[in-house]
Computed example of a mutant assay.
Amino acid sequence: MVRTFLARGLLIGLLAGLIAGAFAFAFGEPRVDHAIALEEAAAQAGAPDPDAGTAEHGHAEAAEHGHGEDAVVSRPVQKAGLFLATGLYGLAVGGVFALVFAGLRGRVGPRSDGRLAVAAAGTAFTAIILVPFVKYPANPPAVGDPDTINSRTLLYVVMILVGLAATAIAVATARRVEGGPWARWTAAAVAFLVPVVAAWWLLPAVNEVPEGFPATLLWEFRLASIGTQLVFWTAFGVLFGWASDRAERRAAAHPLVAAPS
């Protein structure tokens, strides 16, 4: 049974990754191109005066930080690789999700496999993507100090861990609270929000947007970034839930044939 879930997760994860890649290509890549153009224009504007005898060094430095055709990986190759990246992301997420789903099935959440899949996908999106994104949203090229990338990555990982821990606390709280669904959902929401809001407030802010960077471009890039993740998790949750419900109905109709050996 676990192998069935794993195969389903890998296949649907790949499909959802390609769907998310198409969204990112249509809505994210134009913003990346715009940000790269601004970055390269700023690098050219800050290049040393050729009359000072340092023109060669200035052009070399500009090329080193370029993202265009002269970059180590050209933009057309980067855009093609976008689908490879989202596909691999989907495979990895699909495999992990399938294993977690197999462990949760029949223990927590809705009894229906389809509803459990959608609920689990929504929970994963909230805990792993939305919680850290609210505190540390994605930035386009030309935004962010390269010297702080390690500290920023660590802070982002901390927020992911906070989101996962808050989810575990919320689930445990909901199972302990007596009463109807409203009481359990309210207690779970409060148990989830308390550590998340505390982390948002206590962890240091990161604001490395250079002066003069277009606010509209920054906002549109961040919307495209979170939108790509939303498209992925929605597609994955709906497709995995549909496939699980279909398999569950088939097993109910043919119990002897569908029973695992």
Rank of each mutant, 00 (worst) to 15 (best):
L116H: 06
A166G: 13
L10P: 13
H59N: 13
G46F: 11
A43V: 12
A85L: 09
L193S: 10
P137S: 08
G81I: 09
E211G: 15
E248V: 01
L202H: 04
D70L: 13
V196Q: 05
A120Y: 15
P140Q: 08
G90T: 05
D145S: 14
F221Y: 11
A120R: 01
A187Y: 00
A55E: 15
G66P: 05
A42W: 08
V143Y: 02
N150R: 15
I19M: 12
Q44E: 14
Y89K: 09
A16C: 11
S244Y: 10
R246D: 05
P195R: 01
F213G: 06
P137E: 08
A52P: 00
L88D: 02
G81S: 08
P48E: 07
A172E: 05
M1T: 05
A189D: 01
F192S: 13
G90V: 07
A165D: 02
L193G: 12
P214N: 04
S225Q: 11
T123M: 13
S261H: 15
W219F: 07
A124K: 00
A243R: 14
E40S: 07
A183P: 11
E248S: 08
L203C: 03
R115F: 11
R175H: 05
K79P: 09
E40P: 09
F133S: 10
N207L: 12
H254W: 12
V257N: 07
Q44W: 15
A224Y: 03
F213M: 01
N139K: 11
A20E: 05
E56I: 08
R152P: 00
F23Q: 06
P141W: 04
A63C: 03
G17T: 07
R31C: 11
A92D: 02
W219L: 13
A16W: 13
E61W: 10
L104G: 00
A166N: 02
F236R: 03
E64H: 15
F192Y: 12
E211Q: 14
T228D: 03
F213I: 13
A62V: 10
G163S: 08
A142R: 06
V206C: 00
I12A: 05
I226Y: 07
D245I: 00
A7Q: 10
L14S: 02
A224V: 02
P210A: 08
R105N: 05
V143K: 05
P214K: 12
T126Y: 09
V96C: 09
V73N: 10
G58R: 06
R175M: 04
F192W: 08
L11G: 06
L239V: 10
Q44Y: 14
I160A: 04
R111V: 14
H254D: 14
V238D: 12
G9N: 06
P260F: 05
A259S: 12
G58Y: 06
V190H: 01
A119Q: 03
G21M: 04
P50M: 03
S244Q: 09
A98D: 04
A251T: 03
A168D: 02
T186E: 02
R249W: 09
H65V: 11
R75W: 10
A252V: 04
L203Q: 06
E56T: 07
G21Y: 07
G9M: 09
F133E: 00
H65N: 15
L230I: 03
